[in-house]
Design a protein around this nucleic acid. Sequence first.
DNA 1: CCACCCTCCATTGTGTACAATCGCAGTGTT
DNA 2: AACACTGCGATTGTACACAATGGAGGGTGG
Lengths: 254, 254
Amino acid sequence: MNEQLQPLKKQPRAGKAGRSGTQDDIVYAHIFEAILEQRLAPGTKLSEEALGEIFGVSRTIIRRALSRLAHEGVVLLRPNRGAVVASPSVEEARQVFMARRLVERAITELAVQHATAEQIAELRQMVNDERDSFSRGDRGAGIRLSGEFHLKLAEAAKNAPLISFQRSLVSQTSLIIAQYESGNRSHCSYDEHTQLIDAIEKRDAELAVNLMMHHMDHIDSKLNLDEESASDDLHAVFSHLLQTKKPGRSPAKI
Amino acid sequence: MNEQLQPLKKQPRAGKAGRSGTQDDIVYAHIFEAILEQRLAPGTKLSEEALGEIFGVSRTIIRRALSRLAHEGVVLLRPNRGAVVASPSVEEARQVFMARRLVERAITELAVQHATAEQIAELRQMVNDERDSFSRGDRGAGIRLSGEFHLKLAEAAKNAPLISFQRSLVSQTSLIIAQYESGNRSHCSYDEHTQLIDAIEKRDAELAVNLMMHHMDHIDSKLNLDEESASDDLHAVFSHLLQTKKPGRSPAKI
DNA sequence: CCACCCTCCATTGTGTACAATCGCAGTGTT
DNA sequence: AACACTGCGATTGTACACAATGGAGGGTGG
């Protein structure tokens, strides 16, 4: 319980996910990354004091980071009860995916119009990084980089509200993938990302949109969202305990 | 400087925009409403201490409310410099409107599928309130209610991420309308809202979407987004002071 | 007279103490 | 034995004190 990172007071940019300036960004990034890499399982309680001790900052900072994570839907903030890692239900996952299809289509069309050569180069670089991560077997980094690819694409679309929305959707998607992805398959084949970049570079809007939609299909076909897997329905979860002897109210309380 | 609202400690729901429980919601709602009603002009500085004194709470609460407003794009939060009422540029306004078209189309289609009779009744009630506000000449309340109508519609679409995004877009749109709307015309003709509800009730998706798109057209056609109106360009703003005698640099300081 | 710098003040950023709240366990009652 | 109630412990919610930053104004030197 006494371990603590270096106070991270002003180190310009720390380890892996260390972003720009302020402390909350660092805390935010570290927690987010831990969630994506499944070092923090859905439902895990995120105590302010414990986190504060770990990162060497006060609860004030932690609180801001948690608030931001909650706003993006990665963390659930229950009043007076503290924060837990969100555990999206199948229904919530469906809603996120529906919204993403909508946004990704628009983003793709806009990116075809506005992406600069420089941005396209950056996108290619990101795909490389992503491939490296997967070949190293670093699944968490792979999921994260794959998300950052889609976020970068949103930036190429040059529409601030869409970028902000996409950030939230990508975060939640990453969490959903971490939670629901079946087996060990690489979830976001970088090959599709490459093809997509090619289409954008050729300014072929129709092709790019088609590729993106197929990409979306692939992503959610790899998830076990089809009625099975972890359910919120207590009856379903404990159905093996339910004896079908009498249809009375006996199983009502576990 | 000494005036202060009643401490608003635990009054279940105060005045006009008083929402659910906690204090930040109240502060948030009051500031937001003040911005919409143009009692707070774009660019106005929002000092934490001053607001804290006005609402009778500590800076902590104010800070949270401001942070939330900033996240919705209604307030601009400059590090170490404090918060100001956002003053969206023409370009930003365009981006918001583009995103709104996208979202409203999806919301309309989903609402046609999922809206319950009860929700439709609520929507009709909101249109009535909106009409009342405008006939009373209460422009601020009108803009706000009109926004809430679109938000209610989003709720009928039953997609949490879309609702959240729509909330942010509606907030920003309201600010833009307050800032750019030409003259005294009612900006969001409740008539169009009524027609839209009718189409949704008849489950006519195509008609509903068409009406919504026309509605969007109307809204931004009423705005002076076409290069003119309140500009960021100081030279343009103060052009009436510029004497065309000499093209020297004399007018550089007012 | 203008430009630069330096000090001071106002305001925000952060840490921490105290208060309020919730969940849980122990106890008593039916 | 099961339920309800009450007190306790732990954790979050709020306020406030102090530190740090940025801007404005005055002063000095060129």
